[in-house]
């Protein structure tokens, strides 16, 4: 009874995660400058990775596998934003200018 439900949930999470990862990767490729690309990376790091891991947790069930997946999730939730923050900080410090719209607002 429970297993099909869990499977469906996990497929939904995996698919959603995969879609977010793809969107993030396309954003990293297509966005015009470094700071906008950072947004795309953080989508990958948090939402995409998180959903994929949650999907895998549904597959793993109650076991050591789930504990390890939760650990990975915990590490990722912290390291991803920290790395992005450090990147943005370092780029700002080296005076990398963000791309801004120079036109006057009408």
């Amino acid at each position: 009874m429970m297993q099909p439900l869990l499977d469906v949930l996990s497929w939904i999470c995996l698919l959603g995660g995969a879609i977010f990862l793809l969107i993030g990767a396309i954003g990293v490729l297509r966005f015009p400058d470094f700071y906008t690309r950072l947004h795309a990376v953080s989508v990958c790091d948090t939402l995409g990775a998180g959903l994929v891991l949650v999907g895998l947790i549904f597959q793993g069930g109650l076991s050591l596998v789930t504990v390890k997946l939760l650990l990975i999730f915990y590490f990722m939730i912290f390291t991803g934003p920290t790395a992005v923050h450090a990147l943005a900080q370092a780029a700002l410090q080296s005076k990398l200018k963000p791309l801004v719209d120079d036109h006057e607002p009408r």
Binding site: L38, V41, D45, K68, L69, V84, L87, A90
Partner: peptide
């Protein structure tokens, strides 16, 4: 910085890849 960012993202993706492959091969 773009390269570092890309490397960081590839690192994340590799982690997920290894996890998914582990489930695919049933090698936890």
């Amino acid at each position: 910085y773009d390269r570092v960012m890309a490397a960081n993202m590839i690192g994340t993706l590799t982690v997920l890849m290894v996890a998914v492959l582990g489930f695919m091969a049933e090698r936890p």
